[in-house]
Design a protein around this nucleic acid. Structure first.
Lengths: 149, 149
DNA sequence: ATGATAATGACAATCCTTTGCAAGTGATTT
DNA sequence: AAATCACTTGCAAAGGATTGTCATTATCAT
């Protein structure tokens, strides 16, 4: 149904959900479109967005990120650094990717794999547990930071 | 080297690391030994411990949990509920187990598997990423909560 | 025992995040 | 285009988990 995520298509999605299309929301959305590969925190979005629109408030950023996550545009992640980080959701992927978190520089990269599906089957049988979602993170050192380790 | 974790062996470990063996630390440790299967938050430990020793302060609980995690007695976990949860570490296991987190009751159960090791090998090759640790969580519904879902 | 030193408890401070509220704005109807 | 009304905003204050401060107290090697 949803093919590509353009600025316009997302604006339509907001309208369809009867969210008003305010300049603040547009600015925040635009910022994410310019950083599709990043995993931004609310504070970071706030800083980026302030360039375009210095009037914007941090609470508005939080509220907008909530909405964008709620309608499936963003994914809210917890990488253990004490703040939530949001990434652009690529709806095309069935099961979302895993994260490689560098203990050196804090950079987050991504990794796709379907190995977990067979694991899920085992868990369902053995533990009588209905799995709705999973979250797999690897902590280590990326190629830039890996020298000393 | 370390066979079984008894109250005494852990006390010795504290002493060896030149931590003083205060009654507060002993009480907290005892509490964990009485709840080896639980994943307790600082607040929960605080409540449990207050029965034994109403004088104890929350800050002391936090400090003690830090120490016990630092010396490898406890593992500090983040299950996404906004607080850290500590579990008794069973040193015998090479790679630590994964967690099944019930979205209904919040209960956390455990799951052992070595499937991730082959995944790690792939990641190391493909992403030039030196893996130090991993963290795998499954969110879903346990057998008690699973009815409606 | 006793002294050096670390640990405690009470409370303030911090950090990220959410909320209350008065004023403002977008979208829709006249 | 103006009126309308619910939704949004920005600000400041409140939350909740955790950490820092500091005077007092307790542990442990001597």
């Amino acid at each position: 149904m949803e093919e590509v995520k353009t600025f316009e298509s997302i604006c339509n999605l907001l309208r369809n959900r009867s969210y008003k299309l305010t300049p603040q929301r547009q600015t925040i959305l635009q910022t994410f479109l310019e950083h599709v590969d990043r995993h931004l925190s609310a504070e970071e979005v706030y800083m980026l967005v302030k360039h375009q629109n210095p009037e914007i408030g941090l609470a508005t950023v939080y509220r907008t990120l909530d909405i964008l996550a709620e309608i499936g545009i963003l994914l809210k992640n917890d990488f253990g650094d004490g703040r939530s980080r949001y990434e652009f959701s690529r709806k095309d992927e069935q099961h979302h990717h895993h994260h490689l978190i560098c203990l050196g520089c804090g950079n987050v990269s991504e990794f796709d794999d379907d190995l977990l599906e067979s694991l899920e089957a085992v868990i369902i049988k053995r533990n009588q547990f209905k799995i709705m979602d999973h979250d797999l993170k690897f902590y280590g050192y990326c190629s830039q930071c890996g020298e000393g380790h």
